[in-house]
Design a protein around this nucleic acid. Structure first.
Lengths: 210, 210
DNA sequence: TGTACATCAGTGAACGCGCGTTCACTGATGTAC
DNA sequence: TGTACATCAGTGAACGCGCGTTCACTGATGTAC
């Protein structure tokens, strides 16, 4: 059955509310300090109307975080095959490039996710942890496949992926406060660090240790 | 001139206020949601008494962050010489061990710092950024000295240090929600990742690339 | 050492304000016949 | 197709509450003579 006019209207209003909330988070404000009336005002709605879309403010926050997770995942998805074909050095550049673009376009999303990953709200935190773990798992799987396709020795892919995400997130956090030029430098550094990581992984794969 | 009884009393009250604020942050609450009356109650003071110690709530927040920075720095200070003497593998273990202990004892401090590093309050953010940069700089200097003392080729120490801090912080964030056993696993992984990093750095130092 | 005055940490009442949420209501949209 | 009724997104008033901050005041501590 097709969506009725009323249903469409409701969906659009809901999206408007989430978009308003997202806009209000710009500038680094915490989710804690986001007010119901404020969101309603930004959405051109009466404060009480929000209760037609979310049972309470917590639900609104969770929906907001969900949408942030969705955009992060969308931004970091890529063609796995090409990842494998282009080789490690290029793959690193592609990965960091993709992440830099995400930060440039969705910096506030990222800020919100990292903040709430440490927040007091368990549901928010678990949702985000799960999303980040997925990111690590997928990256690890890619590394494994790429290595396997080249007939190299097995590297500690899970560890590489975890470290890679940590390095990129660290760079991402610094990028939030940086000029475009500084962001490029940070991205270059992140590439270098990921490369170092990958080189070290190959060493470990052949049995070398510190 | 020695401290008078009144001065001592005032200092102690101030410390009590900061300690109360710190205790209230346990459980991952954001600094945004910390209330004046709440801190006063926890300190067994009238709400208005706080104004004898801090001009406003922002100042209290900044003092709290300052104290967190101080404890982080204290925790991560170490004998540089021993760091150089014990060799890279042990140095990594020592570093991660020190950090793990810090997290175990001051997890809430760490949470607060990472949260506010992304907050909307510029003074808080800058204060924390500065502190973290110091951490990276000191670590980079240690790496340089250790490498030099062994007559090895120059590694990209600044990059190694930055990546190392990112890796440890990432692990630290995960540790906050973990059991002691899981923390040990995370610490082991962090060690492995730092080792990988160091191995990669040595490769780069002799001109190898991906 | 004793006294008179100054300082100032801590108090309690009061301010205006925005918070999240509830409630009964309106009126346009959807549905059943 | 037209009509009568049901649904439900959006409204505005009201709730109790805690917020950060100001103010005039108290009384113990410190200081000058």
């Amino acid at each position: 059955m097709a969506e009725t006019a009323r249903q469409r209207q409701k969906r659009q209003t809901r999206e408007r509310i989430l978009e308003s909330a997202r806009n209000l988070m710009a500038g680094g404000r915490g989710l804690d300090s986001l007010g119901l009336r404020e969101v309603a005002r930004e959405s051109s709605l009466a404060a009480t109307s929000l209760y037609n879309h979310f049972p309470d403010m917590d639900a609104l926050g969770l929906a907001l975080i969900d949408s942030c997770c969705f955009r992060l995942r969308s931004a970091m998805e890529y063609e796995r095959r090409s990842m494998i074909e282009i080789g490690a050095a290029q793959a690193v550049q592609e990965l960091v490039g993709r992440f830099s673009r995400y930060i440039a376009e969705n910096g506030n999303d990222f800020r919100l996710l990292v903040q709430q990953r440490l927040g007091s709200h368990d549901r928010y935190r678990l949702r985000i942890q799960r999303e980040l773990q997925l990111l690590v798992d997928e990256l690890a799987e890619d590394v494994r496949q790429a290595v396997a396709s080249q007939g190299r020795a097995q590297v500690p892919a899970e560890q590489e992926a975890q470290a890679a995400i940590a390095i990129m997130f660290g760079a991402g956090i610094s990028m939030l406060d940086s000029s475009p030029a500084a962001r490029r430098v940070l991205a270059d550094h992140a590439c270098l660090q990921l490369e170092m990581m990958a080189l070290g992984g190959r060493q470990m794969a052949v049995g070398n240790r510190l």
